[in-house]
Each structure stands twice: as structure tokens, then as C-alpha cells.
Amino acid sequence: MKSCLLCGVGGQGTVLASRIIAGAALEKDWFARTAETIGMAQRGGCVVSHVRIGEKVASPLIPPGKADLIIGFEPGEAVRNLHYLKKDGAVIVCDKTVQPIAACSAQPYDGGEMLAYLQQNAGRCHIIPCQAVYDACGTLKALNIALLGAMAQSGVMDLTLENIQNALQRKIKPQLLALNRQALAIGAKLL
């Protein structure tokens, strides 16, 4: 069984990303289970999606220390959830911070410090430069799919780019498919 925790800030597309991972697992005739944050936290709060795939049924929530992979849509959120990662587990993290509402916090926090901490404390840490995704796609709307491209390339979840592509086909509206395919490819390239 493989477990992947996706974490970020409400509105970044973690729910769709977790569904696509689960959908890709179904392509392989695997079992899949997800648990998602839906509700008030989606308004800019911390969100996490748990995805567990493999040949055996699992509980919806990943216990701490059991995630094979953490996909951080935001550096601070990856650090917040790092205790879910198993020893020597992998982190794929986007380098762009989402600052908390400036009116509520005195100082903006330092994303670089978070990334350095992840690099020191995860088995593997792959940092995905957000700007490169923007340059390739012209938008960050498909950042979630770019991160899935990096995930497929990493091999941690035993899912191929083709598996993800098939799942995209089933889940994404036809008019957005080209953009998402491009994001997937650039994500894979950036790993």
C-alpha cells in the first residue's frame, strides 16, 4: 500500500489532485481511498487530502509516520504536515509561499527556511519552482496537476505518467485538458 498526503491552502486544488491520484490507481485495478478537507477551511484555511492506494483496503486517514509521500502545495504546509512522513519518505513541494492574511500576522514568514527544513528532514525532497510552471503554462491554475507530474516522475506512488493522463481524461473538462496535460509534462520535467 502507498499513502500520499497532499497539503496546501484552501483553493489550491488539493481535492481534485487527490481524486486524480485515486482515479489513476483504479486504472491499475487497485483499491483507492481518499479523505478530503471540504467545508469552511476551504476559505483560505489549511487543507489536507489523504490518498491511500494499493491492493488492500485501508482506513481513510494516514497515521502519522506512514506517508510514503507528501505533496506540499505550499512550503509552510508541507512543514506543518511533515510528521505524517515515514522515515526516509519523499516530499515534493512547490516553492511559492502563500502568506497568511497580512492584517493578522506581524511578519511575513520565510519560505526559504521551510524549504531548507524539508531538505534536511525528509528522505528525499524535490522542490518544484513555481515560476517554471507559470512560464510553461501561462497560469498557476494547473499547479496541482504539475505537482502530479512530478509525483509520477518520482515513482514513489508506483503510478506512471500514463496512469495519471488516463485519470485526467476522465476527470477534467475537455476544454481544459490541453492545459492540464502541459502542466503534467512540465511537472514531470521539473523533478
Binding site: 484552501g10 509552510g76 502568506q99 514568514y109
Partner: peptide, 9 residues
């Protein structure tokens, strides 16, 4: 490192 709090807004 201290991570920011993020109440929904």
C-alpha cells in the same frame, strides 16, 4: 520552524 496560522477568511 514556526508555521503560520491560517484561520479561514
Amino acid at each position: 520552524p514556526p508555521v503560520p496560522t491560517r484561520p479561514p477568511v
